[in-house]
């Protein structure tokens, strides 16, 4: 029964990382940019929740969503759009600088001490089925995660903008020669990434209630590990990678004895290096040759 409990927890955490990973993957798909500042979207939303403490919950979530999307669009417009034709290395350095800038601003404004977000804390309560103790949050994570992933999939499959995003991810030059506006597609990707990041934030908030300047970084780095391991080229493989990394992290954390647990991060980073070297297109993608890294 203990293992079923672990499994349920792992699925819940996997869903959250899948949301973050899909956001990273979509942006990479249409821009060929690994956005190291993705986590700062969650951070920005987290401080918004802190600042709006006392407002009705729905309003707080919507405000956080607005702030996150605004930060995402500013990031794209000011720092990344001018680098559209630059090398991937240059943009990687740029997103690293953006990440650092946002964290420094947060540190100056709110200090390195954590601030409590205080959102949906009731979701931490649990009900029991036999020996299983299931938090409402777990259900929420799985349901919200599933619904949002489904919605984004539908969006990509069914809408014109979704189709244009997939085409751009596959071959930007040809997509544009067919009339696809790069800016529309990129803005679309950043908006969706912002929505997904906010959703993940809202679901992280009850279990990690304290937001610090590094709050988003920790989440995004792990999600990025998942994206690389899963395969960045496709939204589906990036999402699966994110889920896998959240799931594996939770499972191993529960299963490993404490002395070995502390080296879990090293194992995950090591996995990233191995995947980059051996199978750069990712574990969850069919082709092994087409790597654009």
């Amino acid at each position: 029964m203990k293992y079923v409990q672990y499994l349920i927890d792992a699925i819940a955490l996997g869903s959250l990382y899948a949301l973050v990973a899909l956001g990273i993957g979509l942006v990479f798909g249409v821009m060929r940019i690994v956005n190291l500042a993705h986590g700062e979207l969650l951070m920005a939303g987290g401080y918004t929740l802190y600042e709006t403490n006392g407002w009705p919950a729905v309003l707080r979530v919507l405000t956080a969503l607005a702030v996150v999307i605004a930060v995402a669009l500013l990031m794209e417009r000011l720092a990344l759009r001018p680098l559209r034709r630059a090398s991937p290395t240059t943009t990687l350095v740029m997103t690293f600088a953006v990440s650092f800038l946002l964290r420094s601003i947060a540190q100056k404004r709110w200090s390195a001490q954590g601030k409590t977000m205080n959102l949906f804390t009731d979701l931490n309560q649990a009900f029991t089925i036999g020996e299983l103790r299931i938090k409402y949050l777990t259900i929420a994570a799985v349901v919200v995660g599933g619904v949002l992933l489904g919605a984004v999939t539908l969006f990509l499959d069914r809408t014109d903008l979704g189709l244009q995003m997939r085409a751009t991810a596959s071959d930007e030059r040809i997509a544009q020669a067919l009339g696809v506006r790069a800016n529309h597609v990129v803005v679309g990707a950043f908006v969706i990434a912002g929505v997904l990041a906010t959703a993940a934030l809202v679901l992280f908030a009850p279990q990690r209630p304290v937001v610090t300047p590094d709050f988003g970084l920790q989440i995004a780095i792990l999600a990025l590990v998942g994206v690389v391991v899963g395969g960045m080229d496709k939204p589906s493989s990036a999402t699966l990678g994110g889920f896998f990394i959240g799931f594996a992290n939770s499972m191993l954390f529960s299963l490993l004895p404490k002395g070995q647990r502390v080296f879990l991060d090293s194992a995950l980073y090591g996995l990233v290096i191995v995947v980059l070297l051996v199978r750069p297109s990712g574990l969850f993608q069919r082709e092994t040759v087409t790597s654009r890294l």
Partner: peptide
């Protein structure tokens, strides 16, 4: 020995991972 086979984005991410491992260890 392993990393020199990578360049560009792959090298950026892999070297970042090395930093993470070093810190963790």
């Amino acid at each position: 020995t392993a990393l020199v086979r990578l360049s560009g984005l792959g090298a950026g991410i892999a070297t970042f991972a090395v930093l993470g491992i070093t810190r963790n260890v």
